[in-house]
Write a protein that binds this DNA or RNA. Sequence first.
DNA 1: GTTAATATAGTACAAATGTACTAAAAATAA
DNA 2: TTATTTTTAGTACATTTGTACTATATTAAC
Lengths: 207, 207
Amino acid sequence: MNATKQKILIKSLDLFNDSGISNVSLRAIADKAGISVGNLQYHFKKREDIIEALYFELVEKIDSILFIKTDDLLQSFLNISVEIVTILYEYHFFLLDFITITRRNYKIKRHYSELSKRREIEFIKIVDVLIKNGVFREELLKNEYHSLFKRIEVISNFWFSSILIQADVLSKESIKQYSLLISQSIYPYLTDEAKKQYATIFPSQLV
Amino acid sequence: MNATKQKILIKSLDLFNDSGISNVSLRAIADKAGISVGNLQYHFKKREDIIEALYFELVEKIDSILFIKTDDLLQSFLNISVEIVTILYEYHFFLLDFITITRRNYKIKRHYSELSKRREIEFIKIVDVLIKNGVFREELLKNEYHSLFKRIEVISNFWFSSILIQADVLSKESIKQYSLLISQSIYPYLTDEAKKQYATIFPSQLV
DNA sequence: GTTAATATAGTACAAATGTACTAAAAATAA
DNA sequence: TTATTTTTAGTACATTTGTACTATATTAAC
């Protein structure tokens, strides 16, 4: 990709992450990138184009890490959720402004909506494998794992928001906290066998 | 309260809920309330004052329903979470714009932060009671219920957002979905005794 | 009934913002 | 070298927005 275009995206991402999209003007981006507004406009005709470009960058990065190692199912499952949120952290402006963005960009909204549906199907498939391999227990309630997915989805998408409505800044510490939250939310669904394995993965969590 | 002031708040709430605060101008509010912008300004010197007033209305409403009936602990516990989210639904603009609002209104941010801490303490107290009464099981992991609180908090605060990033409108249906999500997230922490009770409360959830 | 306080309307303004447009400069192709 | 395309800068503009300010109108107090 064009060097200037690249620079614009990098600087935009920084500014968006720090201040939120609505507090970042095109002039500010141009300044930070050391170019003129005219030039900025040449590369991204509309402001929205920058946001779209960043969104698809994010999606691509996440897609690239979504495969589970079959030799160590539980560990792999937990790893992936942390890897995802680590990438999300890089683009956290997107999550903090999720509503604003999807409200005025139907393309992103529709794309995300499809993505989410695919992810859910993938999740349920993986859960089936985990059940068959004695890692997860069977469902005790109807759609119990569907419901678990939904909860994990909300937390993944809004964990950073949840922190920032109270804290003044977002730090990488939030990734660890997320990881704890998710692993503990999985715990009750593990078989006794897998619970033992969990104990070896997270010895510090034992009571 | 002054009738005009009341009207302003009601109409602002409607507009905010429908379009998000950043898409609602003072002129639009004045129009909807059938008054002049000058008059609007007379009652609320700053735009932010309207949002603050609505926020404190919301907090007050929630506070008024926060007490648990000791005769039917589980049912009461589940009821309250639905009652809360029902009130939140009335003021959902606030949740949808949570980040934006706390970013530029430090008073609300600080207040909410304190509120959240108090609520967590309350939650843990109630859980203790539930454990002592054989409704919840003991912790199997360190801070397991603290972690549960956090997850419920995120979901309460951002469930509506989570829906709206995919759907075009928010409906009361979302309250039911929330209720399902929360009750199922509680289920694994119930004692065998309480699980039986759960089955009578939600027979349709049984597998 | 006069005075003071409250409430309402209307206008004006300064600041910010996205973007359209023009022109020059730099790079590339012929 | 010349011609053409790509890239960059600069300016201008229309629009929106919050809010400050002024002037009436209405209500309440005495």
